[in-house]
């Protein structure tokens, strides 16, 4: 079984600090990590490889230093890595990214299964999996919590829903996006990681020409959506002290909460207490 895993190197957004004076992000010293959901995708692929005597290729699009996450993937047991790196790829939205990854997968050739993490923590879009699947005309199953059964022709998976799950059977080849519930990823093997750093190692780097795309199809130039503004949300604190006896204080607090805007939790309070918007 030939398996391809798509991974991304992301800034550790849980670690982001803000400059208290300017309110802007401090990007310096922000650690780059393998996207958490993608680690589960790798583990799922390596487990399938072990069970089916398969072959796993990991693919990532990113700057040259993203080779770090491919090295880590090889440490987990992946057979080969392909880094898609070219200044032309920079600034891509999900449309341009899925074109780039799709083209690269066509270049790799035959596959039975593509596994991705549900979403990356820097963008949280969850779009790349389904977009790559459509690019390659293969079926997709997203939010996969368990791979129940797999043979040469089909796979049966448990797909997580908000209020439960469904069991879905898909023809192969197919693309799955997995959630953290699916497995407990192994630690990468240091020996394998060191071996992956050798010159003749199993990691290749492809640029735009290697996958046969023009600069107009990829990166910022090939994108259909554009960020036109970013800002750090800053909330003006009301800093109000509510005084009085406990009952009255709590009643006032609930009213203030219920009449606050921009929050579903506040709306829930308002609905329960039948508060009219002020």
């Amino acid at each position: 079984m030939d398996i391809i895993v798509l991974v991304k190197q992301v800034p550790n957004t849980t670690d982001v600090k803000l400059d208290e004076k300017t309110g802007s992000l401090i990007r310096e010293g922000l650690e780059s990590i393998l996207n958490p959901d993608d680690r589960h995708a790798l583990e799922a692929a390596v487990q399938l490889k072990e069970a089916t005597k398969g072959h796993v290729t990991v693919v990532s699009m990113g700057p040259p230093q993203a080779i770090e996450v491919l090295t880590e993937a090889i440490g987990m047991g992946v057979d080969q890595g392909i880094l898609l790196s070219d200044t032309a790829f920079a600034g891509a939205d999900t449309w341009a990214t899925s074109s780039t990854l799709g083209k690269a997968i066509q270049q790799i050739g035959k596959f039975d299964l593509i596994i991705c993490g549900r979403q990356a923590i820097d963008g949280d879009t969850a779009q790349i999996g389904p977009q790559v699947a459509d690019y390659l005309h293969v079926p997709q199953v997203t939010y996969v919590a368990e791979i129940d059964n797999i043979d040469e022709k089909s796979v049966i998976v448990k797909r997580r829903l908000e209020d439960g799950y469904e069991m879905v059977e898909s023809e192969l080849p197919a693309l799955l996006t997995v959630i953290s519930e699916i497995n407990k990823p192994r630690y990468p093997d240091v020996g394998k990681m060191i071996a992956a750093c050798h010159e003749d190692a199993s990691i290749k780097t492809w640029n735009a020409a290697d996958i046969g795309v023009t600069v107009h199809e990829v990166g910022l130039a090939g994108s259909l959506t554009h960020v036109i503004k970013t800002y750090v949300p800053k909330f003006k604190r009301q800093g109000e002290i509510i005084e009085g006896d406990t009952k009255a204080v709590v009643r006032e607090l609930i009213q203030k909460l219920g009449r606050s805007e921009g929050s579903t939790a506040c709306k829930a309070v308002a609905a329960a207490c039948r508060l009219e918007a002020s």
Binding site: W95, S98, D124, A126, Q127, Q131, Y135, T142
Partner: peptide, 22 residues
């Protein structure tokens, strides 16, 4: 939702349009 986030990107790729999530 889990359905909308599965469907929207697939449709956007099919009809060749950009998509903004969440």
């Amino acid at each position: 939702t889990h359905i909308g986030r599965d469907l929207a990107p697939r449709v956007s790729r099919r009809i060749a349009v950009g998509l903004t999530a969440d």
